[in-house]
Design a protein around this nucleic acid. Structure first.
Length: 200
DNA sequence: TGCACGATTCTCT
DNA sequence: GAGAATCGTGCAA
């Protein structure tokens, strides 16, 4: 079952944890591919300096973060890779988002391998990083702003993940964010070999 | 109009 | 473990 829009209308930290174990599905002309979310990060703008929407910065790029909850916020990073976020939050118009950092491939693995030739056929390396995850699912800026509550690009319910299985850590790649970089706003499933390796 | 840089990944040593 | 690849964005000029 596809997660309802209400699911995203909660604060970013809550949704980031709740998304663990859910399934991201992308249906394309090439076929269907899907993965279980095993790692996320919360971005609580506009007070979060690590967020692109820090201080309410509203531009062409961040526009979708201010839009309706449950839509995809996808952007290009380092001119090479895409990162996939979902717009969330209790307050309408407040730019909160959850970044998907890693997936466990569950469907269309062959197709994912084809898109991620660098993984060398290693399933673990197919989507254990934000840029990899997008490449594996065939996500690019064309999917930016899409509603993830309806096909062909959506998130559906998955096996329940108990609190004991959820590990908390600091976010990655945001050293420039002063005090915000130390916030324990990264969540992942304990003992899961599919989470991105880097730590601290 | 121009310029520096990033919510990263891959390859080679 | 270091360095390159690569381009849209944000801000200065």
């Amino acid at each position: 079952m596809i997660l309802p829009r209400e699911f995203y209308k909660r604060d970013a930290l809550t949704v980031a944890k709740a998304l663990l174990g859910k399934i991201v599905v992308h249906e394309t002309a090439e076929g269907r591919s899907a993965g279980r979310i095993v790692e996320t990060e919360a971005y609580v703008g506009p007070e979060d300096k690590a967020s692109h929407a820090y201080q309410g910065l509203r531009t062409k790029r961040t526009e979708t973060q201010f839009g309706e909850k449950g839509h995809a916020y996808i952007y290009l990073i380092y001119g090479l890779y895409y990162c996939f976020n979902v717009v969330v939050g209790e307050v309408s118009g407040k730019p909160e988002a959850v970044l998907m950092r890693a997936l466990e491939p569950v469907e269309g693995i062959q197709l994912m391998s084809k898109r991620r030739s660098a993984a060398g056929g290693n399933v673990v390396k197919l989507a254990n990083g934000p840029g990899k995850l997008c490449a594996a699912l065939g996500i690019s800026n064309r999917q930016n702003g899409l509603d993830v509550c309806v096909p062909p690009f959506f998130i559906q319910d998955g096996p329940v993940v108990s609190d004991e299985e959820i590990e908390t850590a600091t976010r990655i790649g945001v050293d420039y964010a002063d005090e915000w970089k130390n916030k324990p706003w990264r969540f992942y499933i304990r003992n899961c070999s599919f989470v991105s390796v880097r730590n601290k």
